[in-house]
Design a protein around this nucleic acid. Sequence first.
DNA 1: CCGCTGGCTTAGGGATTGCATAGCCAGGAC
DNA 2: GTCCTGGCTATGCAATCCCTAAGCCAGCGG
Lengths: 180, 180
Amino acid sequence: MDHSVRMTSTLDPRDAWTAEGCTIAKALDAIPTRSAFLILREAFYGTTRFDDFAERVGISEPVTAARLRELVEKGLLEREDYREPGQRTRRRYRLTPKGADLFPALVALMQWGNRWLDDRGGPVALRHRDCGEEVSVELRCAAGHAVCPEVVDLAPRDARHATHDAAAMRMASRRRLAAE
Amino acid sequence: MDHSVRMTSTLDPRDAWTAEGCTIAKALDAIPTRSAFLILREAFYGTTRFDDFAERVGISEPVTAARLRELVEKGLLEREDYREPGQRTRRRYRLTPKGADLFPALVALMQWGNRWLDDRGGPVALRHRDCGEEVSVELRCAAGHAVCPEVVDLAPRDARHATHDAAAMRMASRRRLAAE
DNA sequence: CCGCTGGCTTAGGGATTGCATAGCCAGGAC
DNA sequence: GTCCTGGCTATGCAATCCCTAAGCCAGCGG
């Protein structure tokens, strides 16, 4: 069975364009390493402190420091100093909205790993607090339909505009021919 | 604002457990490199042939060969020989169901990249063939509710059993005290 | 002032990823 | 038999990722 998405409009055939500017590639540049991604996992799990990140991800302190700095520089985490009463100043790292928006990607990988890489469905589950049911990611269109991958097309951004423009140009061309 | 998920049951406090066996980490082990992930992107875009993978991802042939071999070994792609009439035997790579099931993860990264890394919302869009609307991933629970990350909890797999077992043990303990 | 802690940095080294280049090889066409 | 093509492999090198170990430093408590 063919599991690929269908190319449409100027994207068909696939030879006709390059993936320059691909946002999947850009996303992978933003979180280029396994250690960076797992630090984000820990941030989603509520970890905030340097030593805890190192310990819970299982990476060394130099790498922890480097990854935290990069994630702050890229705007996925923010660093702030805080102080509990009677204690000295400490530093914590927290997700920004930009970083938090990676949650579906994290969930999608967990879901895949649960299904294919763990006979028991994974050691942990994400649950909807209100009803207790397990949470997963689903493909949906803007009209609210659940969409299976078999009916997903890849189109240029603004393909409607492009398609509309192309139709308008064809009409103009016909008018020119009729006037000749 | 706190963007982390809430730990529940034996997962709270976060100190109480390690992420050994984490399926996110296992998933990252399965697709450990940027080049592997982008080869999968191309497979979703319908690319099947060796030279095309190398060219469209923009990686060298030695790396293309190594990544394709690894993805086949891990069961995400399958390799088969085929022959067009009048031509010599060729080889193509195609997604397996296991590989195809990574589509939501790919879509989630594209969606994030479209929103945060491209002022114009990304060069391409995924659309629902039946209605033309853009496709994205959404968090949903098994009861069908759309779920925002603020109401997602992390629980041990089979937490209901664990919680139920704990309640049953408390009842038995009360009965023993009453009999004394 | 000393000691401790939290949060790093530095240095050296090993492993991995990826590049460019050249080459190999099977199988087909001529 | 020769040539070409598609799909690799081999080699040497550069860059990156990560490790361990040691060290630094500010700020606090005693």
